[in-house]
Amino acid sequence: MSDYSAAAPAVTGRKSRRGLAEVLFRLRKSPLAMFGLIFILCLAFVAVFAGVLAPYPYQKQNLMHSYETPSRQFWLGTDEFGRDILSRLIYGARISLQVGFIAVGIALFVGGMLGAVAGYYGGWIDNGIMRLMDVLLSVPQTLLAIAIAASLGPGLFNLMIAVGIAAVPNYARIVRGSVLSIREMEFIEAARAVGSSDLRIILKHILPNSMAPIIVQSTLGVASAILNAAGLSFIGLGIQPPYPEWGAMLSGGRQYIRDYAHLTLYPGLAIMLTILALNFLGDGLRDALDPKLKR
């Protein structure tokens, strides 16, 4: 998904300062982006209140009710242990969003700092950091995540780290690009003149001003992080079976695809709709944050 970074606008500078209201206003003009935003908000709500919303605990087995097709008792049917699929999907939303956002958080923090430092100081620091990023970029992201996940072992936290680290170069590049273009601007000069420290300048002035492309990349990044994580779980390198991660659910149900397709249908649909929503939102945000690209 690295093509997104290429498509992301290089710089928008102060425009993002006009505030959330402006962006939301522009966003509202795109029904697809609004759909994405609302879907993600709903999903976040579901994830936070999973304990209240889910009709059953996700691990609750009921072997008398295995493989049931959707009914009034089990809205989306049950899996091979008679566990309620809807409940598992709801708890799965929690896991997927966690993985998506925390992985991007990791990538953003590490990548952002590296990119900012590289762009701000330039010279050999820039060279060193960016060559390292080149190294990471020359291994496709999925493969990198697999290699990291394999060495860390399975588990939720390791999955986040693997997916996060694999995405670091994308953010490093964007932030560096932004910083390079902002570095020489007057208000930075001014800040330097009044004796602000480098760290303060980077954190207070430069990063906030390169927010627009970062937000777009992050939104799309959450999508690809969720997708990557599900893929890793699917091949058994992600989350451990008792937990209802969507990719793991899909993988667990594939053996029964002929008799009980609902075991694979719903988790797949959940992944797809979430990614779709994030992609719509990301596209919408790009247009909203950067009027130059708007046609």
């Binding site: 691990q59 058994g236 079976p241 008792p242 667990g252 053996q255």
Partner: peptide
Amino acid sequence: ERKERVDSAT
């Protein structure tokens, strides 16, 4: 990871 064993453990 063998499915039946995980099931038994559960």
